[in-house]
Simulated scan of single mutants.
Amino acid sequence: MNIVPMNRQYADEYLHWQYKEPYTFYNIPPEGIEETDHEIFDDPSIHYFSVLKDGRLFGIYSYVEIEDGLEIGLGICPEETGKGNGKRFVSECLEFGRNYFNYQGTFTLDVVEFNRRAIHLYKQLGFIETGGASRLSFGKSVTFIKMELGAT
């Protein structure tokens, strides 16, 4: 896979991904596209990358440097989910983050509590649950689980 900084073409594609049930939560609603676009291109604290496979947008990685670690966000395009790509995809996200940011500390992430498939995968990779909280996501109250992977 090839990892490159997010550009307008890939951002537009990502912003319009449409997942099927039960993962429709990850579909960015029309009213959230401008907010997310601003986050991608105008917020210097968040670093977005496109993950390409065979010249196509396969997924996205985001990284935020926080007080006690590096927070990651990631997603695989709808057509490629559920095909056994997750472990390699997340492992490459971690490796890229370590290399790009010259970082060997703790990684954190938030995952929606209903996404048992992702939680199971993160646990396989060594993440542990460290808490949870409800917050608004595009106007909906959602419970997220915070997970952490200790320094290497």
Score class of each variant (00 low, 15 high):
F89D: 01
L15P: 06
I76D: 00
S134Q: 12
D37M: 13
K140W: 01
H47E: 07
G131S: 12
L125Q: 09
Y19E: 06
G75H: 03
V112Q: 05
V112C: 00
H38V: 06
T130I: 14
D42Y: 08
Y61I: 01
R8P: 01
E79R: 12
G132R: 15
T36M: 13
E71Q: 12
K20L: 14
C93M: 11
R116H: 15
I60C: 11
G84Y: 09
S45Q: 10
R117S: 15
G75Q: 05
N27F: 06
G97L: 06
K53G: 06
E13N: 06
T36C: 09
K87I: 15
L15M: 09
H120Q: 12
P22L: 04
Y10N: 12
E95S: 14
S134F: 04
G131Y: 09
K87T: 14
T36Q: 14
G84Q: 10
S50G: 02
A118Q: 03
E80V: 01
T24Q: 15
F127N: 03
E34P: 03
E65H: 09
V142K: 02
I46R: 10
D12S: 12
A118N: 03
Y63F: 13
I76K: 00
F107M: 14
F96M: 03
F25P: 01
S50D: 01
H38M: 07
F41R: 07
V142Q: 07
K53W: 09
L136D: 09
V90Y: 00
K53I: 03
D68I: 04
S134K: 12
L57C: 03
E35T: 10
I60S: 03
Y48C: 01
R56F: 04
Q9Y: 09
V112E: 11
E67N: 11
I119C: 03
E129S: 14
Q104D: 11
R116S: 15
I28Q: 03
P30V: 13
A11H: 04
I60V: 15
Q9V: 11
Y23C: 04
R56L: 07
S141P: 08
R116P: 00
G69M: 05
E71G: 00
R88K: 10
E95F: 08
Y48H: 10
E79F: 07
P78D: 06
A133N: 14
P30Y: 13
E79H: 10
C93Y: 00
I60R: 11
L15S: 09
R8A: 11
P78M: 06
R98I: 02
K123R: 13
N27Y: 07
Y19N: 05
G86L: 05
I46M: 07
W17C: 05
F138R: 04
P44H: 08
R88L: 11
T106S: 10
S50T: 02
I128K: 15
W17I: 07
R117H: 15
D42T: 05
F127R: 04
D12L: 09
R88P: 00
